[in-house]
Design a protein around this nucleic acid. Structure first.
Lengths: 218, 218
DNA sequence: CAGTGGTCTAGACCACAGT
DNA sequence: CTGTGGTCTAGACCACTGG
């Protein structure tokens, strides 16, 4: 079905609905449902009175990106060193951001993130334990938090990021293997799955090594 | 139609399709089309074999935000001082980013952006003149670039932002009324409308005064 | 004008949930 | 088992577009 238009130049007219009815020997409502799917996908566009046409290419929808993915799109290898992976009672601010009562259990995962072997980011992540039980319990820690959440059907569908910049504290400088006073970007993220907070995190990126990028949809 | 579920708690069952057929005296396909619209809007969710239910509330889709909107959501007043508003031949890099030939005409708009009266951002924006003819020609400059583009049906539907951080140059410091060496966030944006580049810009934010935020959708 | 998509009817059979 | 949504048929009339 979609073969009929695959690879066609944008603006090319698709066969009319009544054409397809004849060609496939089905009812017109059936044809329309098939076309509806392609329209929803953005492959086709309909113009009443004129016809159905191949839509101009669409940008990928914006999507909450994981560090791992982000690195992959740059062609660099993401690794991480875990500094802490534990179940703790949520600090007040974290509990509030996760919509939990104070001192409820959360998972904390603190990592240094490396790109091609050199440290670019220090991340401190709190995960709603109720939504991802045992996430940090296995013999091996997950390679990617978002992949692991995806495997549990809990990948964030929405996130709010706040960005500021400053200079590295002595501790940050030591962990990121840079000079104290290096300019860093601080990113705070609150990520939700189906309107329920899954993760809050604070990350510190070496700004001299790393550029953050965002794709913003519609 | 949507009154039937307006305000209902998420998870509430909607009337079944056959119910609605009787209630409104229409065909089932008609009911389904009406429901399809609500499902597409995210108001309802269908579960085969079980029924149709009120969907959990959805986050607003991520959307390319304008400085003006961004300020409004913070409850602060956005203003700007125009440093330059002119038609120029596009520098090579800008031309490439806008998908134009070298030295084609583009609109350049350079502004200092103020939040509650104090400078927070220096922005240098190049606009594809073909997509927004005369944008800077009126007796008054637009109050908001994105509002003005929206009025012409050319509001960006997609954008790609790159963020880095550094320290203010002497010129930037003078314009932003801060000390040389103040930490700043540099943001490069390429904004498209229907897959055609509309705007590329470079902005410099005082990081000690301003936090950038992003909402990222699905 | 003829052709297009948009909407609608009054049925039908299927796969699947929950009881 | 009954009731649900998912899919399908073979028509129909409408408003709109373009020549």
């Amino acid at each position: 079905m979609r073969d009929l238009v695959a690879g066609s130049a944008p603006g090319t007219a698709a066969p009319s609905e009544r054409d397809l009815v004849e060609r496939f020997g089905v009812a017109r409502m059936t044809v329309r449902q098939a076309l509806d799917a392609l329209v929803a996908e953005g492959v086709l566009q309909r113009f009443p009175g004129r016809g159905t046409f191949v839509a101009p290419p669409r940008r990928k929808p914006s999507r909450v990106a994981s560090f791992t993915e982000d690195m992959a799109t740059r062609g660099t290898v993401a690794e991480s060193r875990t500094l802490a992976a534990e179940k703790v009672r949520a600090p007040a601010g974290v509990a509030r951001a996760l919509g939990l009562g104070p001192r409820e259990a959360v998972l904390r995962w603190r990592r240094i993130r490396l790109a091609d072997g050199s440290p670019v980011c220090l991340s401190d992540c709190y995960i709603n334990a109720a939504l991802a039980p045992g996430l940090l319990d296995g013999p091996d820690l997950p390679a990617s938090l978002y992949d692991e959440l995806a495997a549990r059907g809990r990948r964030p569908t929405w996130a709010e990021d706040s960005l500021s910049a400053g200079v590295a504290t002595p501790e940050e400088a030591a962990l990121l293997e840079c000079k104290e006073g290096t300019v860093v970007i601080r990113l705070t993220r609150r990520a939700l799955w189906e309107d329920r907070p899954v993760e809050v995190s604070r990350s510190v990126y070496r700004a001299d090594q790393h550029t953050l990028s965002f794709q913003l949809g519609v």
